[in-house]
Amino acid sequence: MINKQDKKLNFLSHIILIALSALIILPFIILLSASFSGEKAIAHTGYSVLPKAITLDAYKYVFKNPKTIIDAYGVTIFVSTVYTVLSTFLMALLAYPLTKSTMKGRNAINFYVYFTMLFSGGLVPSYILITQYLHLNDTIWVYILPGLVSPWYVFMMRTFFKGIPGEISESAYVDGANEYIIFFRIIIPLSKPVIATVALMMFLTKWNDWMTSMLYVNNESLMSLQYQLQRIMQNIQLLQSNESEAQNLVNIKDIPGETARMAMAVVAAGPALIIFPFFQKYFVKGLTVGSVKG
C-alpha cells in the first residue's frame, strides 16, 4: 500500500526528527567541548561546537581545590537520596488509603490534598514560616522537610494503585492480612513503574535544586551543588563589573577561567543525565498513566 509519495514523507519525517534531536543536543555538546578545550583556545577563537585540541586542564583545575565541590556533592547526594526515599514512601502511604472507598472521610482527605494544587500561600508566607517559626534555615532539613508531599504525584500514584485488581488483596484479607501487610507485600511490589517514575522525578527535583540554598542557607558547607555553580557565575559577573576594585580583593589566578566553569557545569549536570535514560522505560509509561484522571 505504501506508494512513492508516502515513502518520501516518511524519509522527510526522519530528517526533521534527526535535525531537531541534533538541535536539542547541540547545547550539551558545546558545553562539553568547552570543558575539554584549553583556556587559550577559548580566548582566541571563542566557544565552538568541537574542541580544537582536547585537554583535561579544566577538570584538573576544578578538582585541584576540591573542598567546595566535595561539600556540595556530599550535601546534594545526601539530600537527594533521603528526600527521594522519604517523599516517595510518604506519598505512597497517602495515596493508598485514598483508593479505599470503604474508608470514612476519604473524600474530605482527597479534597484536602487536592486543594493545595489550586491555591497556595506563595513565597513570602512560606519564607517567614521556615525562617521565623520552624527555624529550618541553615540546617540540612530545610532541603528535605518542605515539599515532601506533592499532590500531583500523590494522585499519580493513587491512579496507578486503583488499577491493581482488587481480587489480589481480597484473598490476602481472607487470610487475615491487615492493611499494612497488603500495602507492603502486594501494592508496593506491583507498582514498580509508578514508584520508579515518582522516585526519579523527586531525585531530579532535589539534584537540580538551587533555590533552597539561595533562600535559606548561608553556611558555605551546606550549599547545594547547583547553587555553588550559580555562585561561581555570580562572582565572575561581580569581578567583570568592577575589575580594578575586585583585583585587589581576589587573586586573579583564583578565578576559574571560562573552561573551568564549563567543566563545573558538566560535573554538576552529569550524574542526573546519566541516570535518566535507565529510567526512561518506566518514565513515559508512568507519566501517561498518571495524566489520565482516575
Binding site: 510518604l90 506519598m91 502511604l93 497517602l94 493508598y96 488509603p97 485514598l98 479505599k100 470503604t102 474508608m103 470514612k104 482527605i109 484536602y112 490534598v113 493545595t116 491555591f119 497556595s120 500561600g121 506563595g122 513570602v124 508566607p125 512560606s126 517567614i128 514560616l129 520552624l134 522537610l145 518542605p146 515539599g147 515532601l148 508531599v149 499532590p151 500523590v154 491487615n178 492493611e179 499494612y180 500495602f183
Partner: peptide, 28 residues
C-alpha cells in the same frame, strides 16, 4: 480496625501538608 490502620498510614503526610501548605495560606 482497617480504617484505623489506613488513618495511621496517611497521618504523617496529612500533617506535613498542613504545616507546609495550609499554614502559609493563613500567612496571606
Amino acid at each position: 480496625m482497617q480504617n484505623l490502620q489506613l488513618y495511621s498510614m496517611c497521618a504523617l503526610p496529612v500533617l506535613l501538608i498542613f504545616i507546609f501548605n495550609y499554614i502559609p495560606m493563613a500567612g496571606l
